[in-house]
């Protein structure tokens, strides 16, 4: 039997994060998760922290608690994220602040705290969440696309900073997957978006899991600083 991996996933209360958590638990792994809302998942190998990913002291405490409990963290999956749809000229400063706080600051804080423990062990995998909205320059998603562009840049630089320490940092960029995140996007808008993909269908949770497992595989130790988009969208 393989040794269970210890995997920290942010945003596990629903959507892709919940799907990822269920997948790794089914593989026999240990999962630590978080979301602002309480856990929606109960499992003997799952533990949950209710926190906002942009709350620095809460993130520090959650990561250190997970390390105390499990001894180490093998992989971090920075999935928690929010989206807004609006014309840039109609967007509020508060929305810009909130989206960067969750998507970028949250990713940065978790990367910083978990990477410290990975650097000490000279091994670890980090997977961040990008989106096809960035390379497609999607109108109506300027704030979302920009916050994820920041995540991509951060991923690429962090990969270089952590390469010598045996830690890889990559990102997956999903196409639309039917979750709460995209449920308010009008149908016509969604069809136009799908039409820009090489393979024109919605993504599924398994499409995302496949890329994440690829980055986590032991054989992927030489792959870092990469952003893999689904659906044939290229950067």
């Amino acid at each position: 039997m393989k040794t269970p991996r210890v995997i920290f996933i942010t945003g596990t209360s629903r959507g892709l994060g919940l799907g990822l958590a269920e997948h790794f638990l089914a593989q026999g792994d240990i999962v630590a998760g978080c979301s602002r809302a309480p856990a929606t998942l109960t499992h003997e190998r799952y533990s949950h922290c209710s926190l906002d990913v942009s709350d620095e002291p809460a993130v520090v405490a959650a990561v250190r608690a997970a390390v105390r409990q499990h001894g180490h963290i093998d992989a971090l999956i920075n999935n928690a994220g929010i989206a807004t749809m609006n014309h840039a000229l109609l967007s509020t400063a508060a929305a810009a602040q909130q989206i960067f706080a969750t998507n970028f600051h949250g990713t940065f804080l978790f990367c910083r705290e978990v990477a410290k423990t990975m650097v000490r062990r000279k091994s670890g995998r980090i997977v961040n969440f990008a989106t096809v909205a960035t390379p497609l320059r999607l109108e109506g998603e300027s704030l979302y696309a920009a916050s994820k562009a920041a995540v991509e840049s951060f991923t690429q630089v962090l990969a270089r900073e952590l390469g010598p320490a045996g830690v890889t940092v990559n990102a997956v960029g999903p196409t639309p997957v039917p979750t709460d995140l995209v449920k308010n996007v009008p149908r016509a808008k969604m069809d136009a978006l799908l039409a820009r993909q090489a393979i024109q269908r919605f993504g599924t949770i398994s499409d995302v899991i496949n890329v994440v497992e690829f980055f986590l595989a032991p054989q992927s130790e030489f792959i870092t600083g990469q952003v893999i988009y689904l659906g044939g969208v290229s950067g």
């Binding site: 410290k116 650097v119 900073e161 010598p164 320490a165």
Partner: peptide, 8 residues
């Protein structure tokens, strides 16, 4: 990198 390790 040594500094990062040390501080961690």
């Amino acid at each position: 990198l040594g500094l990062v390790n040390f501080l961690a």
